[in-house]
Design a protein around this nucleic acid. Structure first.
Lengths: 410, 410
DNA sequence: ACTGATTTGTTCTGTCGTTGAACTTATGCC
DNA sequence: GGCATAAGTTCAACGACAGAACAAATCAGT
């Protein structure tokens, strides 16, 4: 009995603009595969009248969200079509990731291409949140300037943060790994001179990494038909373990944006104590710290573990096998509850996939009820370490694709 | 990058009809509380022009989805408004539940009132699925006849089934408790003469029970503002343990309709063996069979356990405490992953709530990451044993509320 | 009882957006 | 060079909402 929103006539246009844009975006992403779509092709695909599509395309061309590509490959007789694709010349979006020990900012254009990027390997977070956020805003200011110098129109920005982010209010409610609590991120960022006039958003880094996965151009098309209806849980192991859920091609946010807390799913109630106060959380098995400690590499880095595993170090292999099984138990719960198609290993789990995947796969096969009907594939994320920043920018771009009208002038 | 559907002009009308209908439904449900809404009130609430609302209401009155209630309570000066409410005189829906050992069918009118009902306490399911389904179709035929004799226009029917239901294809893929596998339910039912011409659907019983919870008139308004934006996980313990998830006032289906398999979430990987083949599933702790066995009442009924607990039988109390804790562990995973507002105990868990809730609450508080920010309330379902049938009918009715246009004549 | 204020509901014109068909343009094939 | 074919454009018509003017029904005060 959720209330249905009323619709005005302009919503009709908004939606059809979005429909056209989404279709073009799907084919632009497909790169070499599909030919650039034409107005007539779009009309056939959407079911709209050709005249309507022409009008919508004209508006999108005028707003420079689309551009014509001269001659698409010809097929038979008849007037040749004008190919269409997303234009990377105007609209762009800012993404910023604020991790436990680093910060990255980037600007992506509407095609998803990265047009400016800067990383700060170690960020000084001894100061109060306001100071750390201001430093990230300055970093953002530099990539913004870079992007604007290229003639890009940056229409919004998003910050990726670890912890429980209240996406509605724009606040970071709880971030154990940053040591922050109840920080009004949006308000603090909004004050910064470098960000004046730029609409901002905040979201959880794992949720954004999942969005990045969805946007990643190289993603192999699975049976479901490419990115369109993709559904998966992406595991992002950094300091803690988080996850982002995508269902039906859309991120699943939960009631407040606090979904996907895979790291604190219980693997064994009588298991080791977790930093959150509970016992037997996934993080206590497969979190970076726990994992390194069990491998006898306490205080080391993720890379050390990979090397140890490559050298077939028994402690490392055992720790990874345990961690993979723990991941499998927790992810089985996620698949049982959410009915997603696949599991994707991202973050620091990705390079460890050769060792994590077999026990993980085993547990999924045993513990997911539907596994006897339909296997749960385990994939390795195609996005790299920048997943969260890329996803942050993608969040803004997705907003443009969903509601392009405001960018099309009067 | 989910593809956006194009919209035609008639969709505008459809959506605004639904918006009006949803608003009236919300207030009709509120029973004594709110006064019956007027056209002017609806215009103010939706933001539409008064003329537009009048036209929409006229169409809905003509289609007998709404009716006018003579004089709503007066307030001040001015022309008195005509009150509006959902009409129970025309549209109705059939719901059928096919449990492991019983079958129920009912017809609810658009206000949610039950207008016809018949239960078969024990169903003979020794025969093949086709035969059992045919028996349920005959049961349905009888309540249909009853409803039609009352002048009701039954616009659709839904079957509630235990197990993995493919809602898209209309098939029951796997039902351990029925012993069925890959049954094309919709095709078999569609052949039956009693159901000719009636659009049918199938869904999982727990998902439908959750929908019933959402539709239940007596549901206490929680902080979120009543049923509108409700979000919860409903636990339905019958033979197995299932759950239905409602997020933002809408059921969460998952990619295929296989979400909510709470019963097979792992509570302790080294725990007792479950019927599904895995070990330590929630069902192996809190499923009816396991629970009774641990309480020393193997082979007994749910009621025996309640009586034993009321008599403070130590074995029963211990079993219930363990089951509550196991439920808490599994539900903590659900809340961590889904960020729902609340947990609701339904089915055979409801009468046991006095004993299950305390340990459950305790585990939730310890294991849900967000619990330190926002408590996870545990409620007891307001719907009775008929939850799934009621929800099945509600599924159809919700479809009418969401898309009323087809019922409004040419 | 009458009058004016007030609020509800209806009617009508204007505007927006899509539809469908006719028309123009550009190409390949014979 | 002419014809078939397909792409894109133009235009009248229709459906739906918006906004304002208007009619109807009540209350309050004299």
């Amino acid at each position: 009995m959720a209330t249905v929103e009323r619709a005005r006539q302009s919503d009709l246009r908004e939606r059809n603009l979005a429909a056209v844009l989404a279709l073009v975006a799907d084919r632009t992403a497909g790169a070499g595969g599909d030919p650039a779509p034409s107005r007539a092709g779009l009309a056939a695909a959407t079911g709209m009248a050709r005249g309507t599509v022409s009008a919508l395309v004209d508006a999108l061309l005028a707003g420079r969200l689309l551009e014509e590509v001269p001659p698409p490959p010809r097929t038979g007789a008849g007037r040749p079509a004008h190919g269409l694709r997303l234009s990377g010349r105007r609209v762009a979006a800012l993404g910023v990731e604020l991790g436990a020990s680093h910060a990255v900012a980037c600007v992506r254009d509407l095609t998803g291409a990265v047009r400016a990027r800067e990383a700060v390997p170690t960020i000084d977070r001894t100061g109060p949140p306001a100071q750390v956020l201001a430093a990230s805003a300055e970093l953002a200011g530099r990539v913004l300037a870079d992007a604007r110098a290229q003639g890009l129109d940056v229409v919004g920005g998003a910050w990726a943060l670890p912890g429980l982010v209240d996406t509605g209010a724009g606040t970071l409610r709880l971030a154990p790994n940053l040591g922050w609590r109840d920080v009004d991120v949006l308000a603090l960022l909004g004050e910064h001179p470098a960000l004046q006039g730029l609409p901002l958003a905040v979201d959880n880094e794992a949720a954004l990494a999942a969005l990045a996965e969805l946007w990643h151009p190289g993603e192999p098309d699975d049976a479901a038909g490419g990115r369109r209806g993709a559904s998966f849980v992406l595991v992002t192991g950094e300091v803690g373990i988080g996850s982002g859920v995508v269902l039906g091609g859309r991120p699943l946010r939960g009631e407040r944006g606090w979904s996907g807390e895979l790291g604190h799913v219980t693997v064994d109630p009588s298991g080791p104590r977790c930093g959150c106060g509970a016992s037997g959380c996934l993080e206590a098995y497969a979190g970076q710290e726990a994992l390194l400690a069990r491998a006898g590499l306490a205080g080391g880095a993720a890379d050390d573990l990979r090397r140890a595993a490559e050298g077939e170090d028994p402690a490392a292999l055992a720790a990874l096998d345990d961690a993979g099984a723990a991941l499998g138990t927790a992810l089985a719960a996620a698949v049982n509850l959410l009915d997603v198609d696949a599991v994707v290993l991202g973050g620091s789990c990705a390079p460890l996939a050769p060792w994590l995947a077999p026990p993980l796969q085993r547990e999924l096969a045993a513990r997911v009820l539907r596994a006897r009907l339909l296997e749960v594939p385990v994939r390795v994320s195609a996005t790299g370490a920048d997943a969260a920043v890329m996803g942050a920018a993608a969040l803004v771009l997705q907003g443009v694709l969903d509601a392009p009208a405001p960018l099309l002038g009067a």
